[in-house]
Design a protein around this nucleic acid. Sequence first.
DNA 1: AAATCGGGGTG
DNA 2: CACCCAGATTT
Length: 384
Amino acid sequence: MTERNHFLIFPRIMTPDSLKRLREWFRANAAELPWRPAGLDAPRDPYAVWISETMLQQTQVSTVRDYFTRWMKRFPDVEALAKAEEAEVFKYWQGLGYYSRARNILKTAKIVAALRQAQEPCKMPETRKELEALPGIGAYTAGAILSLAYHQREAILDGNLVRIFSRLYELDFLPTDKGSANKNCTEIYWEYAREVADSPKAYMHNEALMELGRTVCKTKSPLCETCPLRGECRAFQECRTTEFPPAKKRTEKSWHGTVLVVESADEKILAVNGGQKFLDKQLALPHFESARHATVALPAKAEDYINADEVKSVEYCGTFRHSITVHKIECDVLHVQLLTKAKASHLPTENSDKPTAFEWIEKAKAFETFANSFSLKALKKVFC
DNA sequence: AAATCGGGGTG
DNA sequence: CACCCAGATTT
């Protein structure tokens, strides 16, 4: 048995013929999207490709649409973005989630801007190696920039292509599964992706497959009767589309905690950046794990954030639910009012094992300062 | 290889 | 409420 046997058993499906039908389907059905303004054959702006593809990670097209348009208006190119403050970048990202993506985008913009030659505009790198070395750019995004913007014969592999390949070839495993025989599961999928990209029309094949996966080869109730590839799709022919790709198992975790809305005598709110269970590395309200219904007294853990002898009052303001990936969070909200004005002495000294920054925010500006809905929900419990 | 990271939309 | 969605990074 060789590592090639997979391809010997399964004959080639993405033939020049089927790829041609894919392209014709795409020309006839391509949606109008803000990141494909100049026709399907025009090379894209690499910066726009980078931003849109990053926004589209784990976020649906319909949601990204408006975010992308707003973003490009404020940060039209790498240079404009590189000069921005992280807080403002977060505001333009607010609601998309996965804030590390926004942080990495800014990091990469600064790196690319620093590479700029004198008098020349900033330009995204043009090789896979250079792109993948940048923060937030992995194999998928690098392939998207290289093919869609530079029209190189580079492959991409995202959830849409995985679903299509799994059904076309009845692949009963996911790229993330453990390797079998001599072949890594990821590599099998990438080989199919490279086959499709081995063409001067790679840019269109890649985008057409993503569009096909989004609008036709959907996870639930795929529209096989309109699919240009139904003639060679094994899962369709055997009426087994619902079996592919195999479902991935995920473990859910429930977590109960307390979030503090600490208000100083001069009406400022304590915010923390770093060292927390959730929303690490971004400005959020202080929170910690606690038992249910344990909010009658101020938990000892809260002394990490405030000095107990400066507390004027502690009020329980309710409980809210919030989901962060697999975590189902239930969080009690405490409104802690202090006798003293905001000052550095309120900050902890020896409790933090991770780098932690603290900030006092004007109460009136609190709602526009936090970029995550976890903190916003807690504020709402107290002030709304 | 597995865990982690958010929020909005949909049925 | 459960599930889905154009992945990357860390452990």
